[in-house]
Design a protein around this nucleic acid. Structure first.
Lengths: 246, 246
DNA sequence: CACCCGGATGGCACTCAGTGCGCTGCTGAA
DNA sequence: TTCAGCAGCGCACTGAGTGCCATCCGGGTG
């Protein structure tokens, strides 16, 4: 159970380098084998390179720190998310767009359930890895917030809203992701995350798919009766119901 | 500017130990003096203890790591927050309660504006300190989420809502806090944070500040004319404008 | 006063992560 | 063939963090 699941999938057609150096995969495999056997802190970098049969110096050429070997694919995923957000245009509803960006992360985890579950158990136990994971998550959150800043800049408190929405999206995503990881990757990860992100969208006023096509009706007049003290998300919910969306 | 502002205030009547060892304060003062002079990474622990005139081993007795000397009061603040939340009863509206808990953190920063601003500049520049700060913030967020879990457990998706609301509160608080720190601690920190937390409360259904008093308007009728093809978020934006929120 | 005891401190040696530098060996191009 | 460049390797070094023990100091007890 240790050889096939340790290294993450890499079958895309080489976006940066032509040939994937097997050394990187070998190091990840060796590292996880030892981490699972005797624990993260009880494993030194020397142990890893000895098992992988490479020089110590080579380890740090592929991974800037010992923690990085635990998250070998986040760098690429972050680049994917950045590209995804950069490819957005004005047509995309911002909140929905960042939710879709968050789903990219889920997809990465779901590509390798066994590996993801192992890593989850590891990070849950080792405080140092938890701290490192936080810094990774923070970079995702910053990417989302930066995008939202650009899109919500016209609003008053646009940067505040960007930060809050980004944090909420990340929190919802992680809540669903961890729930899925706790179940050993058994349930439907996408459905769980969709549900969690739906909650955030309902709270922050995003909506729904761009019309299931079909009848394109004429202009509508929407009448909303709202007490001023009522929370905004209830107003939005009411509108969604009235419009028959979502 | 280096001697009087480096050490955080400690004039409460000794909640844990009777006499505050001056060594702790001396180490913090020495550390910040060197950090500001030549930078965090260019300063070794040996430099700090040499300046403070104490043994190297003593440093690690007071601070488990070099990073901890930069955040000397967060441990106490976290304990305060935990106690505050534990002292809550059923009468307190949960979202408002966690917002008040977040204000405890702001109070700690505001107690020592000069020190807080110095530390902010430091953490902004040094990646290692940023990562450490994330782990500190994460503990605050967990405390808030744990409390909310207990209070929202009856709802469907209670733990999801707890995580999301906690993250949103922390993000709003930090957005306001950083904005205040960027202005060298000049503006009204409380007002900034109140405004940011008000946004979160409005989004998550805690009926915001009990209305700024004065005119309590009657029900409003909002009429929105919307083409079905327009993205819903534009409709929402329109409503926000109409209601005079945002 | 002599003694002892516990806590605070200092000193030392050690492990291990991470870095800089130079060497080797391979490979592809001129 | 020769040369340039690159990937890997070995080595020495810095600096954080830890364990262990000696020391010092204050106070209580005989």
């Amino acid at each position: 159970m240790s050889s096939s699941s340790a290294a993450p999938r890499r079958d895309e057609t080489a976006e940066t380098a032509g040939a994937k150096p097997p050394m990187r995969e070998a190091l990840v495999a060796a590292a996880f084998q030892l981490f699972l056997e005797r624990g993260y802190e009880q494993t030194t970098v020397d142990d890893i390179v000895a098992l992988a049969g490479v020089g110590r110096r080579s380890f740090f050429r592929y991974f800037p720190s010992k923690e990085d070997v635990v998250f070998p694919d986040h760098e690429r995923c972050l680049a994917d998310m950045t590209a995804f957000l950069a490819a957005s245009d004005e047509e995309h509803e911002p909140v929905r767009r960042v939710c879709d960006a968050a789903r990219l992360v889920l997809r990465m985890y779901a590509e390798n359930p066994a590996f993801s579950v192992q890593r989850y158990r590891l990070t849950k136990k080792v405080p140092g890895l938890r701290a490192y994971e936080l810094s990774v998550v923070w970079r995702y959150e910053r990417a989302l917030a930066e995008y939202l800043r650009g899109r919500l800049a016209v609003r008053r408190d646009g940067t505040l809203q960007a930060d809050v929405i980004a944090a909420a999206v990340v929190a919802a995503h992680n809540n669903a992701l961890r729930s899925w990881l706790r179940s050993d990757g058994q349930g439907d990860a996408s459905a769980t995350v969709d549900h969690a992100l739906g909650y955030v969208q309902s709270a922050f006023g995003a909506a729904s798919p761009p019309h299931p096509a079909g009848d394109e009706p004429a202009d509508d007049v929407v009448v909303v009766v709202s007490r001023r003290g009522a929370p905004l998300w209830r107003v939005v919910q009411e509108i969604e119901t009235t419009l028959g969306r979502d």
